[in-house]
């Protein structure tokens, strides 16, 4: 009985997320346009960045477009997660978050359902981008599109859980400009999304260390390897561990007894 209730709630949350996303056409268009701009303009100018080196999982020299596509797919997940996080803060300011949090289900479940719904809604956009990228001769094996699905889900969940945590500590929507500048951009640029780790090491060992420790780098590598039918166990473990840590921290932040809401006294 409780399982049926939980399932219906999950479907309801998913439907709401889907409807809202479909009705925000500007957000949809920018979500797909952003990585395409990077691919069409940025990648064209950075073709020589890889130099003469073969970087796993690629078995031969690859064009920069081929290298950067998995990073851009992860970037889509990152921006989608942050848009979802911003929507949580908006919902809290507008009051509709109260409806979710006063539903007769455990709060961690409600937050988890919202997280899952956000990822499920974001995935088709990533696939659309991967298909469009074939126009730029980024053609991973066909089976790679299937193999990358668990990597995308896991990475999306990890980044979404991070967004959930960010939303729990952001008192107002205005704070999100700071989040963009001090969280999202460093997370994206200090990663292996745009440059391989060996290239970052050439620029400076500190940057390379930061990128190696950055959970977003591991999400990128997990996706990159899966797309070319390879499994990257270290990245998988890091992404899983970060997912657990971020989600537990977010659930604690939204806890009615110990959470930040309770202490801050938001009305």
């Amino acid at each position: 009985m409780i399982t049926r209730h939980a399932l219906r709630a999950l479907i309801g949350i998913l439907q709401r997320e889907l409807l809202r996303t479909l009705r925000q056409r500007g957000r949809l268009i920018s979500a797909i346009a952003r990585p395409l701009v990077w691919l069409a303009i940025f990648a064209a100018g950075f073709r020589s960045v890889l130099g003469l080196s073969i970087t796993p999982p690629y078995q031969t020299y690859v064009l920069y477009e081929v290298y950067v596509v998995p990073g851009l797919a992860a970037m889509m997940l990152l921006f989608h997660a942050m848009a979802s996080s911003l929507a949580m803060v908006y919902d809290r300011e507008m009051g509709s978050m109260r409806l979710l949090l006063t539903a007769p289900l455990p709060r961690w479940y409600l937050l988890g359902a919202r997280l899952l719904a956000s990822v499920v809604v974001g995935l088709p956009l990533v696939y659309l981008f991967l298909l469009i990228a074939r126009y730029w001769d980024v053609r991973p094996p066909m089976l790679g599109y299937l193999a990358v699905l668990p990597a995308l889900v896991l990475s999306g969940l990890m980044l979404g859980a991070f967004g959930l945590l960010v939303s729990s500590v952001s008192a107002q929507m205005e704070n999100f400009a700071g989040v963009m500048n001090f969280v999202i951009f460093p997370m994206f640029f200090a990663s292996t999304a745009l440059y391989p780790l060996w290239r970052l090491a050439e620029a400076g060992p500190v940057l390379a260390t930061v990128a190696a420790l950055n959970p977003f780098s591991h999400a990128v590598e997990l996706i990159r390897f899966a797309l070319y039918l390879r499994f990257e166990p270290v990245s998988c473990q890091v992404v899983l561990a970060c997912l657990v840590v971020f989600f537990l921290a977010a659930a604690a932040a939204y806890d009615p007894g110990r959470g930040l809401w309770s202490r801050r006294g938001e009305q």
């Binding site: 309801g12 949350i13 409806l99 539903a103």
Partner: peptide
């Protein structure tokens, strides 16, 4: 939810209550 219709708002609430 301002982006949803009246019916969709009620449906969402009903789903949360199973």
């Amino acid at each position: 939810d301002l982006d949803l219709t009246a019916g969709e708002n009620l449906r969402y609430h009903a789903a949360l209550h199973g």
